[in-house]
């Protein structure tokens, strides 16, 4: 009875409405046995961080295709830290140039996935990062 599924929050920060990737990934994570909380479009970093702590997720996956990632992703990391929840792994996805990936990783985003990444790759990454 006491299974311990990995809990993941998939969130769309900012105003971007392209949720194909987020939804496909949410389903893939679900099919891999995880509990996936999806919060829909137009989330502020504050909403995402609050949801992550209330839901006590292991991983937060942020998807943004509008180019606002440098502004939004590190803010989520920062807020989690303020809520003593910096053990939550933050991942990013979207149309993100490689220079930005370096910058995001420096600011505490664990990994960034760009278009063409297979969902299995993300599933494996989530499993590995939660086991650490």
């Amino acid at each position: 009875m006491a299974e311990r599924p990995i809990r993941v929050l998939i969130a769309k920060p900012g105003l971007d409405g392209h949720d194909r990737g987020a939804k496909v990934l949410a389903r893939a994570l679900r099919d891999a046995g995880m509990e996936v909380i999806y919060t829909g479009l137009r989330q502020t970093p504050e909403q995402i961080a609050a949801t992550a702590t209330q839901e006590d997720v292991h991983v937060v996956g942020l998807s943004c295709l509008s180019g606002a990632h440098l502004e939004l992703f590190p803010r989520v990391v920062q807020l989690l830290k303020e809520q003593q929840a910096d053990d939550i792994v933050v991942l990013g996805g979207g149309t993100i140039p490689s220079e930005d990936i370096t910058a995001l990783k420096k600011q505490g985003v664990a990994e960034v996935f760009t278009p063409g990444t297979s969902t299995q790759e993300v599933v494996e990454f989530v499993k590995r990062s939660v086991q650490l």
């Binding site: 900012g14 105003l15 409405g17 509008s66 502004e71």
Partner: peptide, 21 residues
């Protein structure tokens, strides 16, 4: 996106999105 969703550039939800897409 702020224009498409009816927010001026100085709205708090516009942060990070102004002029992007």
């Amino acid at each position: 996106l702020p224009t498409q969703i009816g927010y001026d550039s100085d709205h708090s939800l516009s942060r990070g999105e102004v002029g992007k897409v």
